[in-house]
């Protein structure tokens, strides 16, 4: 599958190491449709290709990716400017169970750079708000300076039909918000654990402890979903780079039902 050229329409710096790219097809045709939770392989010409979740509104015309600069490719990405060209392959992978969640409460738990992959799901839930019960967003990150999408979070918090809780691991002087790990928010949120779908993204340890805490509250493992990250190359189930036990993260995931992978998560060898 050959990457399709996309033009950078907008570049925004979100935090000291995280940025958002808005992309549009170079040929001017409309972009592909995608389901919340899916990812693209983004090719930075001459540098390399990385899997990045799609983070924008599924119903908008641009393609949005929010990325943290951690290594060679993502650092090169962070230097892109308006008008630059990248290659896109995708969308790939499984998606959040937004249809299955209809009529139920939905608890979305994001840790750090885990918020962008969940954002399309939140857009979907809010666009079809009447179809769902309570919707709760629990978001934890390192420090107040690392909070992503601050303005949007404020707007969401002001809504009467969405509960938003934010916490940081380390407060800074002047921070009056919550301090503590994201798992401590689970007891604060109002939802019916017997009728809830949970969606979690963050570092693996955070996802494991979040799932445990949700289960302590009575949420069943079968109704918890997590998004996994593994190094990827082909993105389409051919090369084996993203193998996770018997599964391929690019094809069988990245969104997995927790009960199907929970035993793999505690195997060091995988």
């Amino acid at each position: 599958m050959v990457p399709r050229p996309y033009v950078v329409k907008r570049m925004r710096k979100d935090t000291v190491d995280t940025f958002t790219l808005e992309l549009g097809p170079k040929d001017g045709r409309s972009r592909f449709s995608f389901a919340p939770g899916q990812f693209n392989m983004i090719y930075i010409y001459g540098v390399g290709e990385v899997p990045i979740s799609i983070c924008g509104d599924p119903s908008s015309s641009t393609l949005v990716h929010t990325t943290r600069a951690v290594g060679a490719v993502t650092k090169a990405m962070s230097k892109l400017r308006r008008g630059d060209i990248v290659g896109i392959r995708g969308p790939f992978g499984t998606s959040w169970p937004v249809e299955q969640a209809r009529t139920r409460d939905v608890v979305v738990v994001a840790g750090g750079i885990g918020l962008p992959p969940l954002r399309p799901a939140l857009y979907h839930l809010l666009a079809h708000r009447d179809a769902y019960g309570k919707v709760v967003l629990l978001y934890g990150t390192s420090t107040p300076d690392d909070i992503l999408f601050k303005e949007e979070l404020e707007n969401w918090r002001a809504r009467f039909d969405l509960e938003v809780f934010v916490t940081v691991d380390r407060g800074t002087p002047g921070w009056r918000g919550n301090v503590g790990v994201v798992t401590t928010l689970i007891t604060k949120a109002g939802f019916d654990p017997t009728n809830t779908i949970a969606m979690i993204v963050g570092p693996e340890v955070m996802m494991r402890f979040t799932a445990l805490e949700l289960m302590k509250r009575g949420v069943k493992a079968e109704t918890i979903y997590v998004s996994m990250e593994r190094n990827m190359k082909c993105g389409i189930g051919l090369c084996g780079h993203c193998q996770f036990g018997p599964l391929f993260t690019c094809k069988d995931g990245p969104v997995f039902r927790y009960d199907q992978i929970k035993d793999l998560l505690v195997k060091w060898e995988i």
């Binding site: 943290r68 390192s142 691991d169 380390r170 798992t183 963050g202 570092p203 340890v205 402890f209």
Partner: peptide, 15 residues
């Protein structure tokens, strides 16, 4: 104690 341990791990830092 469990929460504090998780906080200490600096989970969201770059590996």
């Amino acid at each position: 104690l469990e929460s504090t341990r998780l906080q200490l791990l600096d989970l969201y830092g770059v590996r």
